[in-house]
Design a protein around this nucleic acid. Structure first.
Length: 199
DNA sequence: GACGGGATTTACT
DNA sequence: GTAAATCCCGTCA
C-alpha cells in the first residue's frame, strides 16, 4: 500500500526516519520499476541542526526544495559525483529531511545492475550514492512528489521490532558537537545492505 | 569570475 | 589504510 500525503505531513521526523525502516521504496523511470526495502536512514532536523543544509535558516537555490511541504524528494550532488536521495517531511518552511542511505534490493535487480555497472549484489544499493544510482535518481529529479508515479514508498506490512532498529551517530559529517554525534542514524540490525559500521 | 569544499565510492598500496 | 575522482554550488572579490 502506497504511503499517502498525510504520512509525510508529520513533523515528527525522527519517528518517520525509524518508521521508514522496513518500508519499500520504488522508482518507475524509463519504463523500469526498481526498488527494495529501506534498511538505513538518517534524519536532518532543519535550521537548528548544524549538519543540515538549512542550518541557521540558510536559503539557497540548492536547498530550496527542503523548505517545501513534506512528501517531495530533495536530490543534491555530493563530491561532484554522487546524487543523494532525501525525503522532505513536515510543514512547508520547516526544512527537515530524511536521507535514505541504503535499501535491500528486491525489484528490477537486473536494471539496477545495468545502472551501477559491474558491482557485486551486496553493494548494489549500499550507501546513499549507490542507492540513488541504482534507482536511476539524479539531481534533475529534485522536487518530485512521492504521491505521484515516478518515485514512491509502500507499506507492505513488514514489521520491524523497535529493538531491531539501531541508532548511531550520522556518517560523514564535518559539523561541530553536539550534532556530530547525536544518534540520528537508524538501521535494521543485522541487514547486510546497511552501509558503514553496523553495530 | 575564481576558489574551496562536500551527508561518497572505488581502486589502489 | 589512503587517495583520487569530479562538479556544481555558495561565497567572496
Amino acid at each position: 500500500m502506497k504511503l499517502i500525503q498525510s504520512f509525510y505531513d508529520s513533523d515528527d521526523t525522527l519517528k518517520m526516519a525509524k518508521d521508514l525502516i522496513g518500508h519499500f521504496l520504488y522508482t518507475n523511470l524509463d519504463g523500469n520499476i526498481t526498488g527494495g526495502m529501506i534498511v538505513e536512514t538518517e534524519a536532518y532536523m532543519g535550521v537548528t541542526d548544524s549538519s543540515c543544509h538549512t542550518f541557521n535558516n540558510r536559503k539557497t537555490n540548492r536547498n530550496a526544495t527542503m523548505y517545501c511541504q513534506g512528501g517531495v524528494i530533495y536530490m543534491y550532488v555530493c563530491y561532484g559525483i554522487h546524487d543523494m536521495l532525501n525525503i522532505v517531511t513536515g510543514s512547508e518552511g520547516d526544512s527537515q529531511v530524511i536521507l535514505i542511505r541504503a535499501i535491500e534490493p528486491l525489484t528490477g535487480i537486473e536494471i539496477m545492475k545495468e545502472r551501477r555497472g559491474d558491482v557485486p549484489l551486496k553493494r548494489l544499493t549500499k550507501g546513499p550514492g549507490s542507492l540513488a544510482k541504482a534507482l536511476g535518481l539524479k539531481r534533475i529529479h529534485d522536487g518530485i512528489s512521492l504521491t505521484e508515479d515516478k518515485v514512491w514508498i509502500e507499506d507492505q506490512g513488514f514489521k520491524v521490532e523497535p529493538e531491531n532498529i539501531i541508532e548511531t551517530a550520522r556518517i560523514g559529517l564535518g559539523c561541530p558537537e553536539p550534532y556530530f554525534s547525536i544518534p540520528w542514524r537508524f538501521f535494521l540490525k543485522g541487514n547486510v545492505f546497511v552501509s558503514g559500521k553496523t553495530k
